[in-house]
Design a protein around this nucleic acid. Structure first.
Lengths: 145, 145
DNA sequence: CTTTCTAGTTAGTTTTATCTAACTTTTAGT
DNA sequence: ACTAAAAGTTAGATAAAACTAACTAGAAAG
């Protein structure tokens, strides 16, 4: 609702809340902190921001929950993460590093680049269209007059 | 010499000094600022840091120069940039966006990922080894005893 | 029940990176 | 040579994101 743009750091917190809820059912401040290698007060401050933006809900001294909007945004970020991790693995990067690098990339890449990576990941034919772009390029003629 | 790790922002400044020197012969504060979309005082502060680290030289009220070490580091960063930009273009991303995204990626990717991207960019054969990894895998047997 | 430990919070500090405003130096025009 | 404009610098403010230290609430154990 309050569509103030998320910072990279807040995206990370939101994504982690989502992941912990998927994994454990609930997201505790302590676990969020451990997973992101920060201390609990950093999590608390981030949650204050995410609450202001209407992305998470939390009654004092208890676990963090996602609002509808929060769920939507978190899922989007997580999808990017999964896409990028798969992409890196396809390039031959080890799982652990792929995960770490995907985590950085997911916050900064443009929609265009993400789209192209998606294209790269899903071609049905065996010969890559990246290596052989003509496969896709059906002749397109623009009306110049 | 003073091998304190560069921040992303300082890497950007150092790289831009290098690019402007390649393009114009000299790097003026005003042009660095314009190229990075920041104001001149931000450049001045960054230069103070880079000077402390022994990466740039600058006599007051004049252009910025690179030390030997600065040259070395800047060239490394620029190479990463060029690699990544080429990679994105190969994926089908437009030049402008490739440039912008490469600029972000160049600061965060692990050596492993950069290495794999390099591998991806240089295979001589037409069929991608990414799509067909067996091409590279000559049988390697480890001495287990 | 009371005490103790764990989890969560609040307050205040630090670092990085930006900005604006004010000042100084250099360059250029007349 | 003098003055006005452009480029560079310095000082101080602000914002984000982390930290430590100190405090508070809740759970668990006796």
């Amino acid at each position: 609702m309050d569509h103030t743009k998320l910072t990279q750091s807040l995206e990370d917190y939101l994504e982690m809340v989502h992941m912990l809820r998927l994994a454990n059912g609930l997201a505790r401040v302590k676990d969020i902190a451990a997973a992101l290698s920060v201390k609990m007060p950093s999590v608390a401050k981030a949650m204050v921001e995410l609450k202001k933006m209407g992305l998470v809900r939390q009654e004092p001294y208890s676990g963090v929950e996602l609002t509808e909007e929060g769920q939507r945004v978190a899922a989007m970020i997580l999808n990017r993460h999964i896409l990028l991790k798969g992409f890196l693995i396809k390039l031959g990067v080890s799982e652990a590093i792929a995960d770490k690098d995907a985590c950085c990339m997911e916050h900064i890449l443009s929609a265009e680049t993400l789209g192209k990576i998606e294209d790269f990941m899903k071609p049905s034919d065996a010969i890559s269209s990246v290596k052989n772009p003509s496969v896709k390029k059906a002749k397109v003629v623009k009306n110049t007059k």
